[in-house]
Design a protein around this nucleic acid. Structure first.
Lengths: 105, 105
DNA sequence: GCTATATTTTGCTATTTTGCCAAATAAGCA
DNA sequence: TGCTTATTTGGCAAAATAGCAAAATATAGC
C-alpha cells in the first residue's frame, strides 16, 4: 500500500551513490548520531556522551556522515555543531520500521 | 511534507538492528541485486550475469541479504530462486531518491 | 604571546569485508 | 550408479573499517 513509484537505481553510478549512503548508515554509532540529530543540532562532545566512544572515533564517524552529505557542520566558537542536511533522510527509518514490523508487505 | 511519524530507533538493539540492514545494503552489488529483485524472482546465475562478479561472490552477497531477512531463497530443481521477503523495503530507495534530489527538505 | 577548551588528524593495531579459486554439496537425468 | 548443472562453502590475500591515544589545529580569553 502507498508504495512510492519513484525510479529505482538504474545504472552503475546510481548503485554506487545509493550504496554509499546505506554504508554510511551501516554502523550503530552512526545510526545513533543521526537519530539524535533528528531532534536538532548537537555538538561533538554531546554526541560523544551519547555514543560512548572516544571523541576521536566520534569525529571520524561524523566525517563519514559528512562525506555522503547526511550531516553538515557549523563551527561557533570552539564548538562544532552538527545538523541533518536533509531531514527527509529520516523517512528511511520509517521504511525500516515497516520492514521490521510483522505486517504482511 | 508527508514525513512519517513513526518512532526513530531508541535503544541499543534498535540501533544495531537498523544498522545491520543498512550495512547489508551498503554495497553496490547488493543494491543492484535488490533492485533486480524488485521486478520479481531471479536465480543466482541471472544475478551473477547482472553484477558481473564471480558466482561464488554473488552467492556470498546473497547470504548477506538473507542474513538480515531482505531476501529469501527457494530451490526448484538445481536452481535457487531469490525474492524480496518484504517488497516494502523498496520504499527505502524512494527516500534516497528524495534525499539525492535538489528539493529543499 | 600564552593558556584553556573543543575538535580533527595521524599513526597504529586488530578485525572485517571483498573477491577469487578450488572443493564440496544438491538435484536431475541417463 | 555415474554424469551434468547450479549453488554454496572454505581458504586465502588484499583492502577497508573501527577504535584508541597522541599530536595537531582552531578559537576564545587573558
Amino acid at each position: 500500500m502507498s508504495r512510492c513509484e519513484t525510479k529505482l537505481p538504474q545504472n552503475r553510478e546510481d548503485f554506487l551513490r545509493v550504496a554509499e549512503v546505506f554504508k554510511a548508515l551501516g554502523h550503530p554509532a552512526r545510526v545513533r548520531i543521526v537519530s539524535a540529530l533528528a531532534e536538532g543540532e548537537h555538538c561533538v562532545a554531546d554526541l560523544t556522551a551519547l555514543v560512548q566512544l572516544d571523541i576521536s572515533t566520534v569525529s571520524n564517524h561524523l566525517s563519514v556522515l559528512r562525506g555522503v552529505g547526511i550531516v553538515c557542520a557549523e563551527r561557533r566558537g570552539t564548538q562544532v555543531f552538527y545538523t541533518l542536511r536533509k531531514p527527509c533522510l529520516l523517512n528511511l527509518f520509517c521504511c525500516l520500521d515497516d520492514f521490521h514490523s510483522n505486517a504482511p508487505s
